[in-house]
C-alpha cells in the first residue's frame, strides 16, 4: 500500500519582525500531518535561507512576514534561491491582503496565505504539493 507522500519543509522568518506565534503553530500542524519540518528561527537572511534549503534538501520554503515588508522579502528570498540554482517553491504567509497576492506571485511566490487563513487550507496545500512532487518523481 502506498503511503501518503511527505515533504521536507523549511520554515523561516526574514527581517526584523519577531512575531513567530503563527509560524510555530503552522510548523506543528505540518509536522502532525507527517511532514519533516525545520523552523530556522527569526531574522534569517535570504542567502542563509538558500544555503539551508540546499543543505536540508528542502522541497519547499515557507516564509512568515507580519511586518508589512512581504513584497521586498518575496523578491529577495526567491532571488537568493534561484541564484543558488534551486527551484524550490516559496510560500508566504502573514499580514498580507488579498489585493497584494498578484504582486507576490509575480515575484515568484508559489502561493500566499493571507491574514486569517485556516490551518486546514494550509495543510491541504502542502498535501497537494506532496502529491505533485511524488507524481513528478514517479513519472
Amino acid at each position: 500500500m502506498a503511503t501518503t507522500p511527505k515533504l521536507r519543509i523549511l520554515l523561516t522568518k526574514v527581517g526584523m519582525d519577531g512575531h513567530d506565534r503563527g509560524i510555530k503553530v503552522i510548523a506543528r500542524t505540518l509536522r502532525d500531518a507527517g511532514h519533516e519540518v525545520i523552523y530556522m528561527g527569526r531574522r534569517q537572511t535570504p542567502e542563509g535561507i538558500a544555503r539551508a534549503a540546499a543543505h536540508e534538501d528542502a522541497d519547499v520554503v515557507g516564509v512568515s512576514v507580519l511586518s508589512g515588508t512581504h513584497a521586498s522579502v518575496a523578491r529577495s528570498v526567491v532571488a537568493a534561491l534561484r541564484e543558488a540554482g534551486l527551484d524550490t517553491p516559496v510560500v508566504m504567509g502573514g499580514t498580507i491582503l488579498h489585493r497584494e497576492i498578484p504582486d507576490l506571485k509575480e515575484a515568484g511566490v508559489a502561493t500566499v496565505f493571507p491574514v486569517a487563513t485556516k490551518l486546514a487550507v494550509i495543510e491541504e496545500w502542502f498535501a497537494e504539493l506532496a502529491e505533485k512532487l511524488d507524481d513528478a518523481a514517479l513519472s
Binding site: 526584523m16 511586518s67 515588508t69
Partner: peptide
C-alpha cells in the same frame, strides 16, 4: 523595528523596515 533593535535606518539589516 530597527530602532527597537538598535539599528540605524540606513543599516542594510534594516531592509525597508
Amino acid at each position: 523595528l530597527p530602532t527597537q533593535l538598535g539599528f540605524d535606518s540606513d543599516d542594510p539589516r534594516a531592509g525597508d523596515d
